[in-house]
Amino acid sequence: MDQKDIKFRCHGVQVYYGDTHAIKDVDVDIEDKTVTAFIGPSGCGKSTFLRCLNRMNDTIASCRVEGDIRLDDEDIYHRDVDPVQLRAKVGMVFQKPNPFPKSIYDNVAYGPKIHGLAKNKAGLDEIVEKSLRRAALWDEVKDRLDTPGTGLSGGQQQRLCIARAVATEPEVLLMDEPCSALDPIATAQVEELIDELKQRFSVVIVTHSMQQAARVSQKTAFFHLGNLVEYDDTNSIFTNPQDPRTESYITGRIG
């Protein structure tokens, strides 16, 4: 495997929720054009850490983040950084599909509109179609772009959310257990999609399912009780874990 650019460099990251110490001194480097999986038992902090990467934790009043997180060598927690601009670069897809109560078209067009990415209506149409194609949803919805996004099936909704996220041309795509609310067929579709997305984006995915991590990711980080226990190539983690906790988890003894 050839050496890739590092997208995110995280050093000594601590997260507190009020008095609870949720993330303890995590160091991790996330590569560009790679799928990185965060695995670990419930409550281990993997989602919290993911939300640090685009400052979604800012919306939670009691949350405090310390340490150094750099995107392309820029500190994203620097006081001059506008989280709005950051999030345009670091998109996010959530656990439960959360399409806006608007039409499919408006759902996808929302990001480009607010970031001023399209020159005109035609440009917007183009972005919407391109994004829906990227999310492998175009053929299913092209005839009903003006129907509510909430009327789609669960799997379609989640792909719509992915289309919505890629429409803003982010550099990194964060996915917080994107398949946990989906059935196996929809899951397979989304996983296939993730594999294609990595050609353009750096993808970070939080998942409960070790199989999913093994299937889609190239790098895997194992979190346990707020600590980053092990971070390595996915193959190494699953075939030759260094830490006994990792081994216990992937063999199903803790979790």
Binding site: L71, E74, H78, V81, Q85, K89, E126, R133, A136, R200
Partner: peptide, 25 residues
């Protein structure tokens, strides 16, 4: 889906996160 369709979006020029562009302002 083809690679060609993936590459139609133009590469945005790199901009520092700390500099706010006019739209953001």
């Amino acid at each position: 889906m083809t690679n060609a369709s993936l590459n139609t979006g133009g590469e945005a020029p790199k901009r520092s996160l700390r500099a706010q562009d006019a739209l953001t302002k």
